[in-house]
Design a protein around this nucleic acid. Structure first.
Lengths: 316, 316
DNA sequence: GGCCATGGTCAAGAATTTCTTATCTGTGCC
DNA sequence: GGCACAGATAAGAAATTCTTGACCATGGCC
């Protein structure tokens, strides 16, 4: 019984007092009179059996017991507040926070967001670019768009596949004019990106050259940690990139980049739409998913006439 | 203001209900009637604006909002409970939890604990061997004994130096009989330990040989992650260990190990007594610290007649 | 089919907690 | 000395939380 928690209101009063190091300020924060706060602290100290604050003449300071208690209450109430915000978000159909990788955000999502905003003016969309965010409650995110393999072991997640990705060499029209056969690439600057490197099998130049039936030239040329930077470099004429179609779509259609070969590398990795199970039925999330699917469908035009080789089939 | 926390009693009721997935069981845990619990949940749902549980015929299940809230409340209340236990511990003068490294626990602390228990029968001592434990509140530890450098930047810690450590070759009397000069060691099995390796400069065989004015023989021989295991191996006649005097004290006095050379390596690293600032005045902690100091004083006998070289002075 | 046990809900009044008002104390500062 | 400040105390008021003693729906059992 001695381990059971003391009255929570008293704990909260202590937390506020410890944060402000002032009973008066804490009382103001909690919208109560200083007298009430003083009473709460006193009752908590009685529960504990020893004082938590040392009352100095016009300030208070924590006793050792108070110092032991304060960080934990701060953590505890912060966790409760975060949880409560997460629960409130569930009922909120006016704002929608989406996290996606930086490359996809820059090259695909951001340019199209205006379309979604026009179709759904009632929804306030917020983007959080980054790869690491994955705790929906903690990070206050509603939807995650991720490139990779479906783990399948996430029980409480709703997950759908958005598009099948494929990769092929891409370059500016001027540069592409000098390319006749895959062998020509050996003499050119190849741009590498790290973020398809982690795939197994990796979707990199070596894999593409194997698919083309030739040995890969020595690994050289600049490396980029983000695919969009590699693509931007190619747009500037810096070299040939093994581009991801999802990211390059707009540049291809606009003629800023061309694909000199039909040969395209496919991979088991997909773009996936992920949200907490049950969230997919909330109207604004359902609307966003539907919009994504309809927008991404257009990408399949570019599939026609291409020759696909799966990275898994040509693994060394 | 919508972000402000709802009534905490209601949150706690929800937490219990979510953990048990049963209102009746939650009510029993909190020592209230099911009606009271039902009322609390309902009031929480009103605060949130949507239901947290779906009431099935003879069970309840969480809604999406409930699933978003539940893990956070569990974390939050666990943090509060931990903090409260930590605060209670401060007023408790009957039990004392000490953490020390595994080697020091095995070779020095544990054999002497009986003496402390006899001198202070009112204190219940608990040992927690391990190197990683350092959060006094989180891990519910009162005192830590650590070997290493004083960081000095820990504002809210009380820290005193227990002993100056030194190292010298040690072996069984039989094995030591074959050792005349440092050069003889080259042909023998040297036992290595990893836990003085991290020191800077490291307190290892290479350093001792440098101090002895000769090149270290090739790094060979068994390695131990814990110093007490290396010492135990030496006691079994497996080889020569560069032993730490604090750990070997008893074996040296008993004649189970001998030190064939006067040459001893000292280091800037110390054994330190560490506790939260202010805790050092609590009677049972003060008693323990005093006892440690008086016990460790005896070790200085072994200093007489030895030749000390600081590891820092002979760094390569 | 009827009955009972189970698990949750509701409403009213009781009990307890929590808050306010008003007054008081000690200390530093002008 | 007197004032302002920061907190403490006491008594009564307000709010909350709880219990009692109903009720309801459902599934299993005889």
């Amino acid at each position: 019984m001695a381990d059971r928690l003391p009255p929570l209101t008293a704990l909260r009063a202590f937390d506020a007092a410890a944060r402000h190091m002032s009973f008066a300020a804490a009382a103001a924060e909690l919208n109560v009179t200083p007298a009430a706060l003083s009473f709460q602290i006193k009752s908590l100290e009685e529960h504990l059996g020893q004082p938590l604050f040392r009352r100095l003449t016009r300030a208070v300071e924590l006793t050792e017991a108070g110092r032991a208690l304060a960080p934990g209450t701060a953590d505890g109430f912060a966790a409760l507040a975060r949880a409560w915000r997460a629960a409130r978000r569930v009922g909120d159909t006016t704002s929608l926070t989406v996290t996606a990788g930086p490359a996809f955000t820059a090259k695909w999502l951001a340019p199209r967001l205006f379309g979604f905003a026009r179709a759904h003016p009632e929804v306030q969309l917020r983007l959080a670019a980054g790869l690491s965010i994955m705790d929906f409650d903690r990070d206050e995110v509603d939807v995650a768009l991720r490139f990779g393999y479906s783990t399948g072991d996430a029980q409480d997640l709703y997950e759908t596949c958005l598009i099948r990705e494929w990769m092929t060499p891409m370059a500016t029209p001027e540069l592409a004019a000098q390319i006749g056969s895959p062998a020509d690439l050996a003499g050119m600057t190849l741009l590498h990106q790290d973020d398809t490197q982690f795939l197994d099998p990796p979707g990199n130049w070596a894999a593409w050259f194997r698919a083309a039936g030739m040995a890969a030239p020595e690994e050289a040329g600049p490396r980029f940690s983000q695919a969009d930077h590699a693509l931007d470099a190619a747009l500037g004429g810096a070299g040939v990139v093994l581009g991801r179609i999802s990211l390059a779509q707009d540049d291809i259609r606009a003629g800023r980049l061309v694909m000199p070969f039909d040969l395209s590398l496919t991979t088991e990795a997909h773009y996936r739409f992920i949200c907490p199970k049950g969230a997919e039925t909330r109207p604004h999330i359902a609307a966003f998913e539907a919009w994504l699917h309809s927008e991404l469908e257009q990408i399949t035009d570019l599939d026609t006439g291409r020759c696909f080789v799966a990275a898994a089939d040509i693994a060394p």
